[in-house]
Nucleic acid binder design. Structure first.
Length: 301
DNA sequence: CGTCGTGTTCGTTTTGAGAC
DNA sequence: GTCTCAAAACGAACACGACG
């Protein structure tokens, strides 16, 4: 039966090259380490060290074994240390439900502000409130504020602006067809485009259409992709046009891969994003710190 | 369920031998 | 003489079964 202590002794002897110094490192006596090495060699049926004058020289088998086990033993030791640390000095856990894309752009960068453990789940807006109320998440990032619910605290942290984008590789720039400096293409022209949408309900496009044309878009998207980053990529390679939050596609715009077709701020629709949590957590200092960090990050501070 | 005896494991101390 | 490894003797801790 293998004893993992034998491997600790093996690694200590391998690294220090003498049993005596290995014993010092392990806080054992030299004979104990000697017995470990002998026991390991006996079980494995191979010699791991050549006993040289004043030093232990690893054999080829010893070198191979060291390479194969050192990482595993180190992981075991660090896992033990971490577990002990967590038991003696437990960190609080914040469970966050958020849209995938918002997490990547705005939350990921501020996780290290608080020394706690995060559990992230990407959930739809519809189920966020329910998960918040039944304790499956502690913080929700949502675009809807259901003010009738008195148990949930909402705070606006960000306003996302939407832009109509097309690929700079596109043969015909929609900007060139803009009518009489209206700063956005005509509805008729837009209806002729290949549209890429988040889903068939056209959640963002519908909102944009309402603001820009006071009507509903008669559009059948050529492709629906339930991820805003992937939609941006699809537009970049000229699979179609779409309407996206500016923070999702700003890098591609700056790099010249995407072109904003509407330039007037009057015709750009927008949406508020809220952080929400249970009112009983109003005095939770970790959540308060997280909210502050997110608030600053969302505003680019 | 608690106590006792026995065997096993794993460590220490002591000692000896060999190399420098 | 000093340093190192190995072997022998010994002790503490523990597991386990028998017994009252």
């Amino acid at each position: 039966m293998i004893n993992l202590e034998w491997y600790r002794s093996f690694i200590a002897v391998y690294q220090s090259r003498t049993m005596t110094s290995a014993a010092d490192i392990l806080c054992l006596t030299q004979p104990a380490v000697s017995q470990h090495i002998n026991a390991l060699e006996s079980v494995l049926g191979t010699k791991l060290f050549d006993r040289m004058p004043r030093k232990m020289a690893p054999t080829e088998e010893g070198k191979v074994l060291y390479t194969r086990v050192v990482e595993s033993i180190n992981i075991l030791e660090s896992t033990t240390n971490e577990y002990h640390q967590e038991r003696t000095n437990p960190k609080s856990i914040i469970k966050i439900g958020t849209p995938n894309e918002f997490f990547f752009e705005k939350i990921l960068g501020c996780l290290d502000v608080i020394n706690c453990i995060y559990r992230i789940s990407f959930v739809s807006s519809e189920s966020l409130l329910e998960k918040l109320e039944n304790g499956k998440i502690d913080v929700a990032i949502t675009t809807k504020k259901e003010s009738y619910n008195k148990r949930i605290e909402y705070k606006k942290i960000f306003t996302e602006d939407f832009v109509l984008v097309q690929s700079t590789k596109s043969g015909s720039s929609l900007k060139e067809f803009t009518d009489n400096n209206k700063e956005q293409p005509s509805e008729a022209l837009l209806l002729q485009q290949n549209w890429i949408s988040y889903d068939t309900e056209l959640p963002i496009i519908r909102s944009y259409w309402r603001d820009a044309f006071r009507s509903r878009p008669a559009i059948t998207p050529i492709v629906t992709i339930p991820n805003l980053h992937t939609i941006a990529k699809a537009v970049e390679i000229d699979k179609g046009v779409s309407i996206l939050p500016s923070y999702i596609c700003q890098n591609a715009i700056d790099a010249g891969r995407l072109e904003v077709v509407n330039a007037s701020k009057n015709t750009v629709s927008s949406n508020d994003i809220f952080i929400s949590y249970r009112k009983e957590d109003l005095k939770n200092k970790d959540i308060a710190l997280f909210e502050e960090a997110l608030f600053n990050k969302a505003r680019g501070a």
